[in-house]
Amino acid sequence: MRVAVLDDYQGVAATYADWTGRLPEADVEFVRDHVADPDRLVELLRPFEVVVAMRERTPFPRAVLDRLPGLRLLVTTGMRNAAIDIEAARERGVVVCGTGSNPYGTAELTWALILGLARNLPAEDAEVRAGGWQLQVGHDLAGEILGVVGLGRLGTRVAAAGAAFGMDVAAWSPHLTPERAEAAGARLVAKDELFATAKVVTLHLVLAESTRGIVDGAVLRAMRRDAFLVNTSRGALIDQAALREALEEGRIAGAGLDVYDVEPLPADHWVRRAPRTLLTPHLGYVTGRGYRVFYGEVVEDIRAFLDGASLRVL
């Protein structure tokens, strides 16, 4: 059986699981380059019966799945992947299953972005390396409002850290209740109030049609001019044209972004040149622990499939 492991950007997937010991009958190929073109992707994957997708880096719409008649198993890291057409896979008899995930990495990166923005760390680091000293006055977080949009597993961890920093934690999501907010150490507020009053707004919503573009021009115009927006969830939660305008016109103090509307970012993408930004290349889940969970459970999923055992089917 041939197995393709996609989007192994750092070339480390082979080191985070026992591929050979657990899958001695499998011929595993690790693909480092991202293949965005559907025709090239189909050509690459046609010989493989098993494909491993790292999160949503490579889409698998119906048009691609229909051209992979030999595909039997599609494993995604994590238990949710909006880039896979699950119904089309089922119709073709392709089993789609997932893995567990590390609950810490993305929440920790969120705070790296918040702190980096508040204390202007990229520019200060560059200034020291260039022989200079102290460029700007930083922003205090203690006593300020942290606005958490989406108080699920990740949002709850971010909220707890905000409380530890002495911030007043406010939260909103479409179905959040006062009781759930209180249990997470936050207070439920209306969406308009959160965006209008928070010093830091951090997004932790699942991307769906109801949440796509939920941070639009009106929302960004309502934010404080000294506020920061942080997104480690999905790029499409924010209206990109509105965000560009807000940054270029200085209507918010800055944005920390780990996710984008197109990934990997094209070389000429506007956000690479955007002012008042701290940018990371979708690193939320990219930690040693995260990869051990992802790839370790990918191997066990493939083993279970070969053995006819039960799988965590999406």
Rank of each mutant, 00 (worst) to 15 (best):
L141N: 06
L146Y: 08
R153Q: 13
V149F: 00
G147A: 09
A160K: 14
G143H: 03
G147P: 04
G152S: 11
G143V: 05
V149D: 02
G166A: 04
S173A: 08
A164R: 14
D168K: 12
P178G: 12
I145E: 06
G162T: 08
V169K: 04
V137K: 10
V137C: 05
V169L: 11
V137S: 11
A170P: 00
G138S: 14
E182G: 14
L154R: 06
D168H: 10
D140A: 12
S173E: 03
A171H: 04
S173I: 01
G162H: 10
V158I: 15
R180P: 13
G147M: 03
V158A: 10
A171M: 05
A184Q: 07
I145M: 05
G150L: 00
L176F: 05
G150N: 05
G185H: 11
L141D: 10
V148P: 02
A163S: 13
A164Y: 08
A164H: 10
A164Q: 14
E144L: 05
A171V: 08
R180I: 11
G138C: 12
W172K: 00
T177Q: 13
R180C: 12
E179W: 09
V149W: 01
V148G: 03
R153E: 15
T156I: 06
A164I: 08
P178K: 11
V149S: 02
P174G: 01
A142Q: 08
A171N: 02
D168M: 05
L176P: 04
G185Q: 12
S173C: 01
H175T: 15
A164F: 03
V169M: 07
V149K: 00
V169D: 04
R157C: 06
V158N: 02
A171G: 04
E179T: 15
G166D: 04
A164E: 12
P178E: 12
V169T: 11
D140E: 15
L151Y: 11
G147K: 01
V148Q: 01
M167W: 03
A183H: 12
V169S: 07
W172C: 00
V169N: 03
R180L: 15
M167V: 06
R180G: 15
G162Y: 08
L146V: 10
D168S: 09
L176T: 02
F165P: 03
L154N: 08
H139C: 13
L141S: 06
G150K: 00
L151G: 06
